[in-house]
């Protein structure tokens, strides 16, 4: 069973990397780019479990390690 975790900086936290990427895209001619927020993506492979348990386990992992809750938020998806 696989789960995906998306980690992003909270909206209140300035994202210097994202803003540089936005600037680079604008330099490439993508004038319609208004903002970019950069984040992290994790694919976690788990021993088989029911989806609800898997989601709970991976959410715990995101909270304890994959994300720093002071500056980041996360979203967990369990793949069937």
């Amino acid at each position: 069973m696989k789960a995906r975790v998306y980690v992003t900086l909270k909206p209140s936290v300035f994202d210097p990397q994202g803003s540089v990427v936005a600037g680079a895209l604008q330099s490439l001619g993508y004038a319609d780019v208004k903002d970019v927020r950069q984040g992290k993506f994790f694919e976690v492979e788990l021993a088989d479990a029911d989806p609800a348990t898997a989601k709970q386990r991976v959410t715990e992992m995101a909270d304890k390690l994959l994300a720093n809750p002071v500056i980041e938020s996360y979203r967990v998806e369990v793949l069937q």
Binding site: L9, V13, F14, D15, P16, Q17, V20, N68, V70, I71
Partner: peptide
């Protein structure tokens, strides 16, 4: 120390990268 929770807050990238 910040990650360990022994001090409050967090670090992010320098503002001008």
């Amino acid at each position: 120390l910040l990650e360990a929770g022994l001090l409050p807050g967090a670090m992010v990238r320098n503002d001008r990268i």
